[in-house]
């Protein structure tokens, strides 16, 4: 941890969708300024964990604290807490009926009640940060996936968040567009933003993350520095996952294993 203060604290978190027990007791702490990458096979619950951190999914049990506020408290002002948490989605989720600038100004005006001029200034500043100042008046549909994702990051940043959550931000992108988005995320990390990133980009995890968390079957299997988790994984499950991820062409056909989520009640 870079500093003493804990920004995100998840304790004994459980989440079920009907009979499907997706999260089975997650404990995780992320300090201020820390960059944590969450990796794991699909269905391991890593996206669900991320979505529980800003309560897009309602946890079935356990507690989530962000910046001192308990999100799992039934009386919490969730909209107020969410203003401090930026979220970036796999599918970008820009507002298609608004221009790039309007995408950035509408939330500032409606949620933060900023004035027109200030919202426009903050929008322009953040578009410049992600390198898209010249696209200010374009509509999202005319942008490439990588540009849309950078606008989505700028939109979240314009709200002045203390924490940024990334849900597989590069998974929907063509391979040649991934680099631009990762560069913006790296810049944020260098600026000291607290980040929780669900990703399959191992190079990013190895170079930018302070910690890597490997999840499988709804639990945290390994948690440590990138050198520990990616370089010298202690668990067989981690090794197995990494070998398939780093060299998918060499994988064998295998039986479905029982510890995959959704197989047991």
């Amino acid at each position: 941890m870079k500093s003493g203060r804990t920004e995100i604290r998840v304790s004994a978190l459980h989440k079920s969708f009907g009979d499907n027990h997706v999260l089975r007791g997650i404990d995780l702490e992320i300090g201020q300024g820390e960059v944590v990458c969450v990796i794991g096979p699909s269905g391991s619950g890593k996206s669900t964990l991320l979505r529980c951190v800003n309560l897009l999914e309602e946890p079935s049990g356990g507690e989530v604290h962000v910046g001192g506020a308990e999100l799992t408290d039934p009386d919490v002002d969730i909209d107020a807490v969410r203003r401090r948490i930026g979220m970036v989605f796999q599918q970008f989720n820009l507002f298609p009926h608004l221009t790039v600038t309007e995408n950035l100004t509408l939330p500032q005006r409606r949620v933060l009640r900023r004035g027109k001029a200030e919202a426009a200034r903050v929008a322009a500043e953040n578009l410049r940060r992600v390198g898209l100042a010249e696209k200010a008046d374009a509509y999202p549909s005319s942008l490439s996936g990588g540009q849309q994702q950078r606008v989505a990051i700028a939109r979240a940043l314009a709200m002045g968040p203390e924490v940024m959550l990334f849900d597989e931000p590069t998974s929907a992108l063509d391979p040649e567009l991934v680099g631009d988005v990762l560069a913006v995320m790296r810049m944020l990390a260098d600026e000291g933003m607290t980040m929780m990133v669900v990703t399959h980009e191992m190079t990013f995890a190895r170079e930018v993350a302070d910690r890597v968390v490997f999840m499988d079957g709804g639990v945290v299997v390994e948690d440590g520095t990138p050198e520990e988790v990616i370089g010298r994984p202690r668990h067989e499950r981690t090794r197995h996952f990494l070998s398939r991820l780093l060299d998918p062409a060499m994988a064998d056909v295998e039986e479905e294993t029982s510890d995959q989520v959704g197989k047991e009640p």
Partner: peptide, 14 residues
Amino acid sequence: PKGQMEAARSLGFS
């Protein structure tokens, strides 16, 4: 799309 509501809510919209 459902993502539109999620994006708005995650930005702090009621």
